[in-house]
Design a protein around this nucleic acid. Structure first.
Length: 241
DNA sequence: CCGAAGATTGCCT
DNA sequence: GGCAATCTTCGGG
């Protein structure tokens, strides 16, 4: 790890220790609100980015129709069937990553989706990462990790991190305890965002009034894609590889 | 095998 | 507010 000349933390907001594995060895509905105020740190050759979690969602495995593991184990969701404290990352919409932290496998597999956070270290790096994708928008600081795919991009988390152990102190990607726990009175809860099944369950938790919390969007079915061209082949011939 | 949905986001009207 | 982008994964035929 990084050598320090004294015991004084160089960055107070990133000096807390990793959460104990037991923290995650509980049902998702208990872990989720407790994750608010906790910090995800990712150290890469580019530098360090830390995000304080402000919005999360609980998924309850095979007891939850909205969970990726509802219908059992597959190659994609295998990590959720493993030990708690590990990272489950999935790829969606052909372009986005979302990250979860695995919890107690009471119902076969469970996890908490990290929906949003506030970047508390490495703002310039997070801004640079986000800016790469944006053609006509300059990201505001509060938007850097506002939404699950943005959070992953700000932290440079992708499929290569699927299965990473977030409670290993030596891991570049770690989940740290909250320096100042969020009082229960400041936590709001409501329905999860963008899911079609079990859409009414209030399993989304966020810090009340936090500007980094993503806007709620109800599930909206996408209309069928325009059908492939049927008609004569305009190329009129074969195309050599 | 193939069709369709998807724990989203950004940009345009 | 609407819709395209973009492709993996899953489940049904």
């Amino acid at each position: 790890m990084t050598p320090r000349s004294s015991d004084a933390p160089a960055h107070p907001e990133t000096a807390t220790e990793v959460l104990p594995r037991d923290f995650f060895a509980r049902p998702s509905l208990q872990v989720a609100p407790d994750l608010l105020g906790c910090v995800i740190v990712h150290e890469t050759p580019e530098g360090l980015v830390a995000v304080m979690l402000t919005e999360v969602e609980a998924y309850d495995g095979q007891n939850d129709p909205a969970s990726h593991s509802y219908r059992g184990r597959t190659a994609r969701n295998a990590v959720m069937f493993g030990p708690p404290g590990h990272v489950y990352v999935y790829f969606t919409y052909g372009m986005h990553f979302c990250m979860n932290l695995v919890t107690q496998p009471v119902h076969g597999s469970s996890a908490v989706l990290l929906r949003a956070g506030r970047v508390i270290a490495g703002v310039p790096l997070a801004t640079a990462r986000r800016s790469r994708r944006l053609a006509r928008t300059i990201p505001r600081e509060v938007d850097l990790a506002r939404g699950p795919a943005r959070l992953c991009e700000a932290l440079a988390v992708d499929l290569s991190h699927d299965g990473a152990d977030a409670v290993d102190p030596a891991s570049p990607l770690r989940a740290l305890a909250s320096a100042t726990p969020v009082p229960t009175a400041e936590i709001s809860r409501g329905p999860r965002v963008g899911i079609s099944r079990a859409a009414d369950l209030p399993w989304r938790f966020w810090i009340t009034g936090e500007p980094t919390v993503s806007p709620y969007r109800a599930y909206a079915a996408r209309r069928p894609r325009t059908k492939p061209v049927t008609g004569p082949d305009r190329e009129g011939g074969t195309i050599s590889p």
